[in-house]
Design a protein around this nucleic acid. Sequence first.
DNA 1: GCCCTTCTGTGATGGCCATCACTATCGGGT
DNA 2: ACCCGATAGTGATGGCCATCACAGAAGGGC
Lengths: 232, 232
Amino acid sequence: MNEFDSIIGALAPDSLLRALSRDQLEGLLVKSSRRELSKGDVLINQGDEDGDFAVYLLSGALKISFVSASGREIILNYCAPNELVGEIALLDSGPRTASVSAVVQSEVLLLPTKLFLETVSTNPASVVGVMRELARRVRQLNLVVESDRTFSMGPRLARALVRLIDRNHSDGRLVYSPSQNDLGAFAGLARENVSRLLSEWESQSIIARVGRSLEVRDAEYLELLAEFGDDL
Amino acid sequence: MNEFDSIIGALAPDSLLRALSRDQLEGLLVKSSRRELSKGDVLINQGDEDGDFAVYLLSGALKISFVSASGREIILNYCAPNELVGEIALLDSGPRTASVSAVVQSEVLLLPTKLFLETVSTNPASVVGVMRELARRVRQLNLVVESDRTFSMGPRLARALVRLIDRNHSDGRLVYSPSQNDLGAFAGLARENVSRLLSEWESQSIIARVGRSLEVRDAEYLELLAEFGDDL
DNA sequence: GCCCTTCTGTGATGGCCATCACTATCGGGT
DNA sequence: ACCCGATAGTGATGGCCATCACAGAAGGGC
C-alpha cells in the first residue's frame, strides 16, 4: 500500500487513466500534484503561457470558458469528475485559449505535459482513449455550431440543459446549477431571455426550481426540443 | 522501388503519415485503396454506418459538411492536401456525423480504421501528430462558436475567407472558390448577404473577382476584421 | 447554339432577440 | 441583523439579418 492507492482506487472504472499500467500510472502520479479548489478558484487563465500541465478532475465540477473579442463570455463546457481538461494546450504549445475554473469545491490532479504525453503515447490502449475523448469534443462542438446557427432560443437553451443533466441520477437534477448569466453564456443567449424561457417552462412543469437550483422534470420534452429544434 | 514509392514520395514533409516508419507505412498502404474523385463526388454520407475507413487527401480539395435538423447545410471545413479526414467516426463507431465530398478533382487514400489505429497507436511520434491534428480542430471550432455568437456578418465572412486563403501562394488566391451559397454555409449567413458583402468589399478593392473565383487583395484588412470583429 | 440549371444582384419586409432600464429578491459575510 | 453585491423578473425598443421575391447572368451538357 503506497500513497497513491487512494487516488488510484478512486478512479472511475472507465477513467482514461485506467488504461495505463500500474507502473506508468505511479510514474505519472509521482510527478503530478493534487490540488483542492474552492468554488470560484481559477486554475487556468485564458492567455496563460504555462501550457505545461493538463488537468484531471477527481471530484467537483469545472467550467471551461473564454472571453470573445467582443468581451462576452462563452462557456464551452462543464466538466464532471474523471474528465481530462486542458490537453489542447499540451499539443501546440501556444497560450491557453480558454480559462478553467471550479464552480464547486473540487479536487484536481495536475499532470505534467511532457511526461503525460510520453506515457500516453507509449501505451496504445490509452492513446485510443485520449483520441476518443478529443473526438467526442469535436462532435460536441459540431452540435453547438449547428444549434447556434439554426435553432432559436428555446431549443438552444434546451440543449444546454440536457447537457447539464446528471446522468448518475434518474431524477432530473443537474450536475451543476449555473446562474442565468452562465446558462446564457453556455447556450448562447442573453440572460434576460434565459429568465423568460425558464419562467415559461416552469409554468408548464417542464422544469422546477428547488431553491436556486433547477431540476428537469420533463427531460423527454427538452430532448425533443434539443434534437429537432423549432419544427418540433 | 516498389509500387508505393510514388505515393510515399509525394507525401508532404510535414505529413502526418511521415511519422510512421517505412515498414509501417507500407503495411498500411497495402491495405489501403487509392481513389480518384471528380468534382462533386460524395465520399462519405452523413448517416453512413461504414465508419471503417479514414480519408487521407493526396491532392485536390474536400468539403466537410452536414445538414442540420432544420435542413440547412453547414460547412465545417474545406480540406487541403495532406490532411486527414473522417477519423472522428473511427473512434466511436457511430454513424458518420458529416458528409465528405470533393469540390474539385481529387485523389484520396482510404485507410482502414482498425489497421490505421493500430499502426498509429504503436508509434508514439505519429500519435502526437494525430492528437495535435484533433486539437487543432477543436481550437478551430472554438473560434467558429465565438464568431457565430458575437460577430456580425462582416467579420464572420472575413473569417471564412481568411480560412480559405491559400498559404502556398502570396497572392491572395483561395484554395478553392466556393459559390456564395457555400460561402454562406461556411460562414453562417444567408447567401443574399454574402452577395451584398462581397460587392461592397469589391468596390473597396479588398477583394477582387477573376471570372467566378475570388482573390483576396487586402488580406490584412480581412484578418483584422476576423480577429477583432465589429469593434475594429 | 441553345436550353436549363445553377449562380448572382438587389430591394422590401418582418421577426427574433440583444440591449436598455428598471425593480425586486436573494444570499452570505462580518 | 444588516448591507451590499450578485442574481433574477419584465416591459419597451430597435437593429440585425433571414427570408421572400424577383430579374439577370453564367455555365455546361448534348
